[in-house]
Nucleic acid binder design. Structure first.
Lengths: 128, 128
DNA sequence: CGGGATCCTTAAGGATACTG
DNA sequence: CAGTATCCTTAAGGATCCCG
């Protein structure tokens, strides 16, 4: 336990620009979904499990741990029975969120274009 | 050849929000590096191979094809000998680039914090 | 409820050889 | 030069059981 990295390992060695690594981490499918869910108000584990569609318990836990480790989420445990744990976005995450929404907005605006571009590309490829 | 998707496959089924999928695609390690490299002026295959640090020929080709398919890169072949192929960013990609730099900038600004947060987290975890 | 540990499957990705 | 095709390794991720 407590490896250099919590997630399985994504960097082979010195693997280039660490900045790109960070983006890759933070803009990943699970991270984005979780951050978006946690940005408004603190969320609980089970809440995320339901609101993040296809996520498995394993990936939910792993991604949460990484986001916490990177200082993007704060984990608060309420020592009640049954236990209650809440994850809330840190200031750093809120700043990030602004840029993520920029990306999100771009993706939304261009989704139709992308879909059409793919169709065109695929049809073109069919003309083998 | 010419599957629904060129890259091996990242979505299991209906797998949730397609917007997040797009971001995942476009903000991936290889895509970001390639887009950044291609934004100023058209780049050639071999140029990318050298400028994108750890990328393999396979991933370079695969990622290029996907970016082309999504309408983010335009591929131009000059029928010379030896052949010359250039990849240039489309308007769509240039728009995206603005948001990517936002993310890049965030990552740069917060890199020290992240590194420290990780150290703190790891030391804390060592107190088992 | 909120996980940790383990096992197993699939997908991501690297290396290399070959080609127009 | 700019790939494609193939083979193979590793890492991502799912399913499940268990525990405080």
């Amino acid at each position: 336990m407590s490896d250099d990295c919590v997630l399985p390992k994504s960097d082979v060695q010195a693997e280039a620009c660490p900045i790109v690594q960070i983006i890759d981490r933070v803009a990943g499918k699970w991270s984005v979904s979780i951050l978006v869910a946690a940005i408004r108000n603190p969320v609980r584990y089970t809440e995320l499990e339901r609101s993040v569609p296809g996520i498995s318990r394993r990936m939910l836990t792993l991604t949460l741990r990484n986001l916490e480790r990177d200082g993007l989420l704060e984990r608060t445990v309420y020592p009640t029975v049954p236990p209650k744990v809440e994850y809330s976005a840190t200031p750093s995450a809120r700043e990030l969120y602004g840029h993520l929404t920029g990306l999100l907005e771009w993706a939304e605006r261009h989704q139709p274009d992308i879909i059409e571009a793919r169709k065109a590309y695929d049809e073109q490829a069919l003309a083998a």
